[in-house]
């Protein structure tokens, strides 16, 4: 299965939830947010959100800005 994470194609083996994807990417989970196909997925729903082929995922955090 192929999904797009922050614009990059990623191959995932088998079924994967959003929570599993985050673990696999070894991302720090504090104060990040995730969009799946342009809709925010609440943190509590990461575990129950199963990814589908061609899903588009945006994972954001905060940087310096004005």
């Amino acid at each position: 299965m192929r999904v797009f994470v922050n614009g990059e194609a990623r191959e995932l083996s088998g079924t994967s939830s959003l929570a599993e994807l985050i673990t696999q990417l070894e991302l720090p989970v504090a104060r990040i947010a995730i969009e799946l196909n342009r809709e925010v997925v609440r943190r509590n729903d990461w575990g129950s959100t199963i990814l589908q082929d061609d899903d588009r995922i945006e994972i954001v955090h905060f940087v310096g800005g004005g």
Binding site: V5, N6, P28, A30, R31, I59, V60, V63
Partner: peptide, 17 residues
Amino acid sequence: TVAVRRVPLDRSSESFL
């Protein structure tokens, strides 16, 4: 103020906050 940006996937990034 802070800005919202994609998390870099190629390295473990520390939290700016």
